[in-house]
């Protein structure tokens, strides 16, 4: 009884802290959290619009050195080109809050993507961070792959070399590419999770 009581107290305290199932996060094997966001041109996109297609979500902050590694080297743009050409929907998401590092409005996002020859399907603006938090996006970059049925099949880092050094890209194993190759071939994703690495997403405090 004493033990039950202490468990009950613990649960009550956790609930009070708002800590009980805080997990509206994107979990591999489960349905991807629904969202609707406006893109850099002012057009709204919902995840449901992409049903039947494989979707990549890429968390982005152009001032973060880890993002700089993958855009400065052309690695991210190369992946975007390759996979959108194969019918994959590639969504770049900015969750930097107003006044925070990497915050962009639509015009700024467009100008940056043009300058870097970005090739994602759309850049979505998540200024209040709701979608980032719903996915549990921690870093820039943080990558998610969603299959044609809307199930999360990959969540984690872009590759296995956590660094800001472009020279590491050549020898890194790119988990997103590997996951996309498998999921578009109708296969199960071998490495479905990995450590996301990068700058913390610059959410509002």
């Amino acid at each position: 009884m004493k033990r039950l009581a202490s468990v009950a107290v613990a649960l009550a305290v956790l609930a009070a802290l708002g800590a009980v199932p805080a997990h509206a996060v994107a979990v591999v094997g489960q349905p991807a959290p629904a969202f609707t966001l406006t893109d850099s041109h002012g057009k709204a996109h919902s995840l449901a619009d992409f049903k039947g297609k494989v979707v990549v979500l890429e968390w982005w902050n152009h001032e973060c050195p880890f993002v700089g590694k993958h855009y400065g080297s052309g690695n991210m743009q190369k992946l975007q080109k390759e996979w959108t050409a194969k019918g994959v929907v590639w969504i770049t998401v900015s969750s930097s809050a107003p006044g925070k590092q990497g915050h962009v409005d639509g015009a700024k996002a467009d100008a940056l993507m043009k300058e870097m020859a970005g090739a994602s399907t759309a850049v979505l603006l998540d200024h209040d961070g709701k979608v980032g938090k719903a996915y549990g996006a921690k870093t820039t970059p943080h990558m998610f792959v969603i299959d044609a049925k809307g199930t999360v099949v990959y969540a984690g880092g872009i590759d296995d070399k956590p660094s800001t050094d472009q020279a590491d890209i050549a020898t890194a194993k790119n988990y997103v590419s590997a996951a996309l190759a498998e999921v578009t071939a109708g296969k199960a994703v071998t490495t479905a999770t990995s450590q996301p690495y990068g700058c913390g997403v610059k959410y509002a405090e």
């Binding site: 004493k2 033990r3 202490s6 107290v9 613990a10 305290v13 956790l14 802290l17 800590a19 805080a22 997990h23 996060v25 994107a26 979990v27 591999v28 549990g136 969540a155 984690g156 999770t193």
Partner: peptide, 21 residues
């Protein structure tokens, strides 16, 4: 996630949340 410390007899328990991924 917060780590919640509770006590029972001579033992303490620290409740930890697992990374869902």
């Amino acid at each position: 996630q917060p780590q919640l410390l509770t006590h029972e007899g001579g033992a303490s328990r620290l409740a930890l949340a697992r990374d869902p991924n």
